[in-house]
Simulated scan of single mutants.
Amino acid sequence: MPILMTIVVLLLSLSLLFVWMRWRRAAQADYIRSYMFPPGLLERLHKQRPDLSLKDQHLLARALRQFFLVYLKCGYKHIAMPSQVVDELWHEFILYTKNYEQFCKKAFGRYMHHTPAAVLGSNLRNNDGLRRTWWFACLEENINPRRATRLPLLFALDAKWNIADGFRYEPDCSALRANADGTVYCGGDFYGGGSDGPYDFGDTTNDGGSGSNADSGSSDSGNDSSGCSGGCSGGCSSGD
């Protein structure tokens, strides 16, 4: 009887822990989505990018929130920043030291570091950061990461605003190969499909997203050898 009681208590404890973790993750996601950036932040970026309207600035803030949601949903694994202009806003936010530290503590329970990112190269497993960003950013907008018919916001803004030093992406590889104007990267390359086989982050039950309602379209081919570069990557350290 004591053994049975111990098993029941253990199962109940595990169930409560699971429910608490799901609740905490949902609360953190809500905090990120509703977070109001410190006054003056968008104005500082506007000095660097005077062509961006007030509406554009708020869209930019939404894209940075999406990047932070990716970090939360992937379980604080390494992710890479795919947008130059969003990265600039991230830089400016970090300069608000106390605000940024408080945000990280409430959103992640730890500090999110800002580190250089590598380009998307031929070795698929060396590009986890950027691929992981693509995967969870797509799920955040109910886009099928394997057969995207549109880009998530985080991957679309540089081209939308024609950022001179930005990065341009296409969801369809056929459009990539037909485009000879500048460097454009293919969404299909983010999930694999090349000689190393498909790249899949597997279980997405923790991320709050679902592929069942995702966009679908013609299958992308990931055999193109071109890469995709990101501005910076994110990492964490519980010691900061």
Rank of each mutant, 00 (worst) to 15 (best):
R131D: 01
R146S: 00
N162V: 12
I163F: 13
P145I: 06
F167K: 13
A159P: 02
E170C: 12
C173S: 14
K160A: 08
A159N: 11
A164D: 12
I163Y: 08
L154P: 03
E170P: 10
C173G: 08
D172P: 06
Y169P: 07
I143H: 02
L154S: 07
K160N: 07
R146N: 00
W135T: 00
F155M: 06
L176K: 15
P171C: 09
A156F: 12
A175L: 15
L157W: 07
S174R: 15
N162Y: 09
E140R: 09
L151I: 05
D172F: 14
A159W: 10
R147K: 07
W161S: 09
W134M: 05
L154D: 04
L154C: 06
T149I: 11
C173E: 09
E140S: 02
R150G: 12
R132L: 03
Y169F: 15
L176V: 15
W161V: 11
E140P: 01
L176H: 15
R132Q: 02
D158T: 08
R146G: 00
W135F: 13
D165T: 14
N142F: 06
G166C: 13
L151W: 09
G129A: 10
L153S: 05
A156I: 06
D128F: 07
L139V: 01
R146C: 00
F167D: 10
A137F: 04
R168F: 14
D172T: 11
A156Y: 12
R146M: 01
C173K: 06
C173V: 11
A137D: 06
A164Y: 15
I163L: 12
P145F: 05
N144E: 02
D158K: 09
L130C: 02
E170Y: 15
T133E: 02
D158V: 11
C173M: 13
E170Q: 13
R147L: 01
W161K: 04
T133R: 04
W161C: 07
A175N: 14
R150Q: 10
T133H: 06
D158E: 06
T149P: 08
T133W: 03
E140A: 04
F136N: 01
R150S: 09
R150A: 11
S174L: 14
W134H: 05
S174F: 14
A156S: 10
C173H: 13
I143E: 00
A148I: 03
T133I: 03
L176A: 14
G166M: 15
A148D: 02
F155N: 06
R168L: 11
